[in-house]
């Protein structure tokens, strides 16, 4: 058991009490704090379905020890997207409209990874996109529609910037 600790998630403080020391940030987000968007696909950092931002860095929440994340700013998909019901980011919109979503299990992690990419590289090449999402496994789509979604989102941002 750990002492009570506080996690700062999406700008709000959440007390975590009676937790086990070994609990990952992913487990605490999902099972204790009610943030289910990050998914548990492998718990080995191999699938990327649990991608979240710790401070401003994209990491696998399954490999973050929750009790050691007390002094960080954690952002999950719930905090990245508009809070209004059904509202979406440009990347999320592109995913829905291009058919990049099938079973949807990998989708939250991929949306996080694409946002992370476009923050640093607003005009990525095909290879740069592939490398940036290479840690997010998808078994349904073969990635074709996902790559298309990124292109659509990039084009939309380019259009908006003009």
């Amino acid at each position: 058991m750990t002492e009570m600790y506080v996690l700062r998630v999406n700008g709000d403080e959440h007390a975590v009490a009676d937790a086990w020391l070994g609990e990952s940030l992913l487990y605490v987000l999902r099972e204790r704090l009610g943030f289910p968007a990050a998914k548990a696909g492998c718990e080995q950092g191999e699938c990327g379905s649990c991608s979240v931002f710790v401070d401003t860095t994209l990491v696998c929440a399954c490999l973050v020890l929750a009790a050691a994340a007390a002094d960080t700013e954690i952002t999950t998909l719930e905090g990245l997207q508009p809070s209004a019901r059904g509202a979406v980011t440009d990347v999320q919109r592109a995913f829905v409209e291009t058919g990049a979503v099938q079973c949807g299990f990998c989708t939250p992690g991929l949306v996080m990874a694409v946002h992370a990419l476009l923050e640093t590289d607003p005009e990525p090449t095909d290879l740069a996109v592939r490398e940036a999402i290479s840690g997010n496994l998808c078994r349904c789509t073969g990635y074709g529609r996902i790559l298309e979604a990124v292109e659509v989102a990039v084009a939309a941002r380019r259009g908006a910037a003009r």
């Binding site: 998914k39 999950t76 998909l77 979406v88 829905v96 949807g104």
Partner: peptide, 23 residues
């Protein structure tokens, strides 16, 4: 037509309830 999935928005928002999300 290129109809979009009825569960698409819930899935991109991480709100679609997978069996593992149940409580």
């Amino acid at each position: 037509q290129r109809a979009i999935r009825p569960d698409g928005v819930a899935k991109v928002r991480g709100e679609f309830a997978f069996a593992g999300d149940l409580w």
